[in-house]
């Protein structure tokens, strides 16, 4: 600090400046926040799905918050394949039991964790999903095995309402 005395004018400058800056800064927020997901988008937050029509080895895709969600009724071979993998082989280690509440039903967001394309089912080197955009391979548990995607396919929040119905979100 300089050795000039603090005058009444200095005080007025600094307080005026501070209040103007704080006021302007707080006014920026509404302009930024208006772009965030709005109330009507958030209102669509959950989806119920009837599982009865799906036979083993079949999958369906439902839309949840504008995103595709894969629901796959896995075959016993797929389940055993998913369980047999040792965690050391996985770029994003996660046990199959942590990904499927009921091993027969795999429920996951069908969006490649690389840049958001939709992977194709029962394709790729691990017989799970393959993303054609930049070549990511996922296994029968939806875990990333090869390619540029950094993480496993995301598991959304869901609950089994009863044996035949799940609620996503």
């Amino acid at each position: 600090m300089s050795d000039k005395p603090v005058t009444r004018r200095n005080f007025l400058y600094i307080t005026t400046g501070t209040f103007t800056a704080a006021g302007a800064a707080s006014l920026v927020w509404p302009f930024v926040d208006q772009m965030n997901p709005d109330a009507s988008v958030k209102a669509l937050a959950s989806t119920e799905v009837d599982l009865r029509p799906i036979a083993p080895g079949q999958s369906i895709t439902v839309l949840w918050r504008g995103k595709p969600v894969f629901i796959r009724r896995r075959t016993p071979e797929e389940i055993s394949e998913a369980k047999a993998v040792s965690l050391d082989e996985l770029p994003d280690p996660q046990d199959d039991s942590a990904r499927a509440k009921n091993p027969e039903w795999l429920v996951m967001v069908g969006i490649c964790t690389h840049l958001g394309c939709i992977p194709l089912g029962q394709k790729g080197e691990y017989n799970g999903w393959f993303c054609p955009c930049h070549g990511s391979h996922y296994d029968t548990s939806g875990r990333i095995r090869k390619g540029p995607a950094p993480t496993n396919l995301e598991i959304p929040d869901y609950v089994f309402l009863n044996d035949n119905t799940i609620k996503i979100g």
Binding site: V32, M35, N36, P37, D38, V41, R65, G66, K67, I111
Partner: peptide, 17 residues
């Protein structure tokens, strides 16, 4: 990304902006 999209995926809000 959610802020850019105005939602959880690409859709109308993004198109308008």
């Amino acid at each position: 990304t959610n802020w850019l999209w105005g939602g959880y995926a690409v859709g109308s809000p993004l198109l308008t902006r």
